[in-house]
Simulated scan of single mutants.
Amino acid sequence: MSVFKQVTKEQLADPKIRWIDARFSLQDPEAGRRQYDEGHIRGAVHWDLEKDLSDMTAKGGRHPLPSRDRLTALFRKSGLRPDDEIIVYDDGGEPFAARAWWILQYAGFRNAFISLEGFGGLEKLGGDIEQAAPAPAPTSVEPEWNESILAHKEDVADLTERPGEGLLLDARAAERYRGEVEPLDRVAGHIPGAKNFDWSQLASDGTFDRDGEAAGRLAEMAGSGEPVTVYCGSGVTAAPLFAMLKEKGIRDVRLYAGSYSDWIEDGDREVETGNTGSGDGL
């Protein structure tokens, strides 16, 4: 399954391709929209992590998935159709385009890709830049939801109770996985039985390295054929792990959208600290 796309000049000029600008900053949530307003690929719509790709009023972790109705409304106002070729970009080597791409996969858009180039790379390649937001003709698209790639808290709880029936991968930095530091959540540690693979190892120089050593190690970790469930702090940085696993041909992969912040939300789930899952990225 091809996930990442090395964009060509011809694709940048193709009016049939639908572009999504997913730039965002966790440190400055308004930065992505400011960047978009300052200039974006012609025809690109902007999908904001917290306003479009999350429901910040809901339970289910720090970046809960929006309802199906809200996502359907987003797809329709963005002018998307089931067979469209869709390319999503952020600043390159970041998790935000991967989050948008995963949501498109969840909704059944099978011809969607993550641009290997960030906005700057697309601009250098000759992308036509505009400031005005486009007004695509709304569609009446009906998503074909794929529940097989979404894991819920109960699914993850089953994994912790039946070790050996699936691989649980924590995409956070190793020190957060081990519980040595926790800058965001009230409880430090990781979900019992999880192994660690820091998602940021997959990126370098503003792009994801599909053929790099880190991507190879990730594929090797997941290559036994057992189902894989990826998570992070809030479901955002786990998306690059999901995307790279699919790029590497791993078929049975789910993303725990609520992730660790959802796991600890009600205070009724156990956590572990230290290198209990061995794994990688340590």
Rank of each mutant, 00 (worst) to 15 (best):
E220W: 09
P183G: 06
L241W: 05
D155N: 07
P136N: 01
R110Y: 12
D205C: 08
T139N: 04
E213K: 08
G223Y: 06
R210M: 15
P138G: 03
G179E: 04
G233Q: 10
A132I: 12
A194D: 01
Y177N: 02
V230M: 05
G206E: 06
C232G: 10
F242N: 02
E175W: 11
A243D: 05
L218D: 05
Q131N: 09
W199T: 03
P136K: 01
A135L: 14
G206C: 07
V181C: 06
D158H: 09
C232K: 05
P143S: 04
D128P: 00
A219T: 10
I149F: 01
F119T: 01
C232A: 14
E117L: 12
P183T: 09
R162H: 15
D205S: 11
A171C: 08
G164L: 08
F113S: 06
G225Y: 09
K124Q: 15
K124H: 12
D185T: 05
P136G: 00
A214N: 13
P183Q: 06
F208Y: 14
L116G: 05
E142T: 13
E247P: 00
S115A: 15
G126R: 05
E142P: 00
A157R: 13
L150Y: 11
A219V: 13
F109H: 01
A215H: 06
L202H: 01
E175A: 11
A188T: 09
A214K: 06
A222E: 09
G193L: 07
D198V: 07
F242C: 02
L167N: 03
V181N: 05
A171V: 05
